[in-house]
Simulated assay, not measured.
Amino acid sequence: MSPFAVMSTLNIVIGILFLLGAAVFIAIGVSAAVGKLPGNSVVGLRVPEVRKHESTWVQAHRVVGPFWILTGFALALGGAFAFISHGWLWVAPVIAFVAAVVALSVGGNFGARAAALVDEAIEAQDADTADAQQAPQPQVNLDALRKAAGKADEQQGGA
Rank of each mutant, 00 (worst) to 15 (best):
F83D: 12
G87H: 11
E54G: 08
Q133I: 05
L75C: 02
A148T: 11
F67W: 15
I84A: 14
A112S: 15
F73S: 02
A144G: 06
R62Q: 15
Q137T: 06
A130F: 13
D153Q: 07
P136V: 05
V106H: 09
L77Q: 00
R51T: 01
E154A: 02
Q134P: 00
A82E: 01
A60N: 11
S85T: 06
A96M: 04
W88H: 00
G87E: 07
T71D: 14
D153M: 12
F81D: 05
A115D: 14
T71Q: 13
A74M: 13
K147M: 08
I95F: 15
V91I: 15
D119Y: 05
G111S: 10
S105I: 10
V106F: 15
A60M: 11
P66H: 08
S55T: 13
G150F: 04
T56Q: 07
A135G: 00
L145G: 02
Q137Y: 05
S85D: 05
V102L: 15
F67Q: 06
A144E: 13
A114T: 04
A124P: 00
Q155P: 01
F110R: 10
L117H: 10
P93R: 10
D143Q: 15
L117V: 04
E49Y: 06
F81I: 00
A74H: 03
D143Y: 01
A149P: 00
Q125T: 03
R51Y: 11
A116R: 15
Q134D: 14
L104K: 00
F110K: 13
Q155V: 02
L142P: 02
V106E: 10
V101R: 07
T129E: 12
A112P: 06
G107L: 11
A132T: 07
W68K: 05
T129F: 14
V118Q: 14
A116I: 06
V94N: 00
A76H: 07
Q156W: 08
V140Q: 03
R51N: 09
F73Q: 00
A116L: 09
W88R: 03
D143L: 15
A96G: 09
V118W: 09
A103N: 11
Q137F: 10
S55M: 12
F73E: 01
A99D: 07
A115H: 12
F67T: 05
Q156T: 04
S105L: 12
A112H: 03
W57Q: 07
L70C: 06
V98Q: 00
S85L: 08
V101A: 15
A74E: 02
G72M: 14
A124T: 08
D119Q: 13
Q133C: 03
A92Q: 13
D126A: 05
F73T: 04
W88E: 04
A114R: 06
G157N: 05
G78V: 06
G107V: 03
Q59A: 15
D153E: 13
G108L: 13
A124E: 14
